[in-house]
């Protein structure tokens, strides 16, 4: 066993370092639900199972996460300050939430401009060290679009209500959205940070016809992973003496000593080489 504590005290090899906590609050029995309001100019109330859950929810705002037991939830979205959920503007729709999963329910415009709602599943898979994830969701009243990153088409032909995603090196990208087959941005360009271990979710929302297309951003962190290791030396100047080599020298010495008739030394060497 080569592992050893050179100085100080530690119970187990790494008891001193904190145990990593799960990245999300969700558990084996609950789901995370975010709600994004992406219908322009329409403050709303959101009812879940008939109970008012988001009061006077403003366009462009992101609510959550709600930590909810897995199951089916009925969501109705009404004009703000409605007396109840009997006359919803969107829904009611049933959302089936699975345990251990993160969702974003988005109230948005369909391609033809009618208000609707879509439940997206957020990718919580671990991201390689040094990278972040970019997810782009089309929730705007607009035809198919291309997503441009630093001027070049990164994702093509994205339609409402769908998403595309990719892991990217950490950094800042200049993101823009253009109608498919064109390069003239209808949204952006805007600088979007790709942060390490973070799923950065960009929503295109609003209406092309009304000229209020915009970006909304949601980030889900804690998806990082550690480097594969630390190789911090290349010459051997700091190496411990090799126990194999020591054993050989002792054995060699013992042979010489034995040959010279020192029986005590031979017995000792025999023990060491076992």
């Amino acid at each position: 066993m080569r592992n050893k504590i050179v100085a100080g005290a530690a119970i187990g090899v790494f008891a001193a370092v904190g145990v990593a906590m799960p990245a999300q609050a969700i558990s084996a029995t609950t789901a995370d639900l975010y709600v994004l309001h992406a219908v322009p100019d329409l403050p709303v109330d959101v009812y879940v199972n008939g109970a008012l859950t988001l009061d006077d929810f403003q366009p462009g705002d992101l609510a959550g996460p709600l930590d909810l037991p897995a199951g089916v939830y009925t969501v109705a979205i009404t004009a703000a300050d409605a007396a109840d959920d009997s006359a919803p503007a969107i829904g009611p729709i049933d959302l089936t939430l699975a345990a251990g999963t993160s969702y974003t329910a988005v109230a948005h415009l369909a391609e033809d401009g009618t208000p609707t709602a879509t439940l997206f599943t957020n990718d919580l898979t671990t991201i390689p060290a040094g990278e972040g994830k970019l997810t782009v969701r089309h929730t705007a009243a607009a035809p198919a679009v291309d997503v441009l990153a630093n001027g070049a088409a990164a994702f093509t032909n994205l339609t409402n209500p769908n998403e595309v995603k990719a892991n990217l090196p950490v950094g800042t990208i200049s993101a823009a959205v253009a109608l498919t087959g064109t390069t003239e941005p209808v949204i952006g360009p805007a600088d979007v940070a790709i942060a390490e271990g973070v799923n950065t979710i960009v929503y295109a929302w609003g209406s092309a016809e009304d000229g209020n297309l915009d970006l909304a951003i949601q980030t889900i962190g804690g998806l990082h992973s550690a480097p594969r290791g630390v190789d911090a030396g290349s010459a051997g100047f700091a190496a411990d003496p090799d126990p194999g080599m020591i054993a050989w020298s002792i054995a060699g010495l013992a042979v010489l000593l034995a040959a010279a008739g020192f029986s005590v030394a031979r017995a000792r060497a025999g023990r060491r080489s076992n």
């Binding site: 990593a20 804690g222 550690a226």
Partner: peptide, 21 residues
């Protein structure tokens, strides 16, 4: 607190690079 000698392949990387503790 401590100085430890750990075989590389046994290094608990998630704990070494811990972000939440």
């Amino acid at each position: 607190e401590s100085v430890q000698n750990v075989e590389k392949k046994q290094l608990p990387l998630d704990q070494v690079f811990d972000r939440d503790g």
